[in-house]
């Protein structure tokens, strides 16, 4: 029945307007000719409107920040929505050097590079053993890791701060790397364990028969097979660690060693730069653009990486 009164695929034209007023609840109306046309049009206009509105709400603040980063302070104050008179690229230079965005960028790069490699290596080692070997305590260790995903991290940070202070790890880059790895392990182990379980056993067995040790089988056979999973969880951890705010705020209070997110917050609150709005916006854009650009280029992989853990 519906196939017969479906309106022709002419966009924008309600094929049969129908006698009902637009907006009337469609579900309880008697089915008849024109019903699909009326309901479809009203819903289409409404849903398209909402979709476009949300897209505007997402994109506009980002565009506003990019625009403001090219304006003078006076321009930002007088006309929040005005276009920049000329492109004031000096804002970016000021943010990079005077506001130390360059240093913070480098700090972040070092911390994330170190912790990403560490997370993937240690995470895949633990996950492989937990997924492929039977031994007493296997389930216990697995749930110990996975349980960490739902515990409020802030609770652990209070004692951890003083532990790190006493061991000299507080306010050091390597200390921060170790903490990042430790707090990334729960999700990484959870994700990679289920990934290793899906890999075929025959290849590993063949390698073992050929005389390869467990360790060699892992590094030369299993890790290359697990590449898609490693990429997904790697992207997930890269974004999480690059954007990390709470851990460095608590455990990395040395101004010299600030990471990007921390540096920007300090910049926005510190009295010394209170006047330099354009510099702050430039700093924001400097921090935003690389990630946004990377996302647009690797869109498919990023989306898979971030959503993979949540679907089943």
């Amino acid at each position: 029945m519906k196939t017969t009164d479906t309106p022709p695929a002419v966009p924008g034209a309600p094929a049969v307007p129908g006698p009902r007023t637009p907006g009337a609840p469609a579900g309880d109306a008697p089915a008849g000719t024109g019903r699909k046309g009326g309901e479809g049009t009203v819903l289409n206009v409404f849903s398209h409107g909402m979709l476009i509105l949300w897209a505007v709400m997402v994109v506009l603040p980002l565009l506003w920040a990019v625009m403001s980063s090219f304006k003078t302070d006076a321009g930002i104050f007088d006309e929040p929505w005005g276009l920049p008179d000329t492109l004031h690229f000096e804002n970016w230079g000021r943010a990079w050097t005077e506001a130390h965005m360059g240093e913070y960028f480098l700090n972040t790069l070092v911390v994330v590079a170190g912790s990403l490699v560490g997370t993937l290596l240690l995470g895949s080692m633990a996950a492989y053993v937990l997924a492929r070997f039977e031994f007493p305590g296997n389930r216990f260790i697995y749930f110990l890791f996975v349980g960490g995903m739902s515990f409020p991290v802030m609770l652990a940070l209070v004692p951890l701060f003083f532990v790190m202070e006493n061991t000299g790890l507080l306010n050091t880059i390597h200390g921060l790397i170790l903490v990042y790895i430790a707090y990334s392990l729960p999700f990484t182990v959870f994700f990679l364990t289920s990934f290793f379980r899906t890999l075929p056993t025959s290849i590993a067995e063949a390698a073992m028969l050929d005389g390869a040790s467990h360790t060699r089988t892992f590094f030369q056979v299993m890790l290359p097979l697990a590449r898609p999973g490693l990429i997904s969880v790697g992207i997930f951890n890269f974004l999480g660690q690059w954007n990390q705010y709470m851990l460095p705020t608590v455990l990395n209070t040395d101004p010299e060693k600030r990471v990007l997110a921390q540096g920007l917050v300090e910049l926005s609150t510190s009295q010394g730069y209170k006047g330099d709005y354009s510099g702050l916006f430039a700093g924001l854009v400097i921090a935003m653009l690389p990630v946004l650009a990377a996302y647009i280029v690797f869109q498919r992989q990023v989306v898979t990486g971030l959503t993979a853990g949540a679907v089943k």
Partner: peptide
């Protein structure tokens, strides 16, 4: 693609 933008940005930013 557009809706996903905020997800890749730091919550601090």
């Amino acid at each position: 693609i557009a809706y996903f933008f905020p997800q890749v940005l730091s919550i601090a930013i």
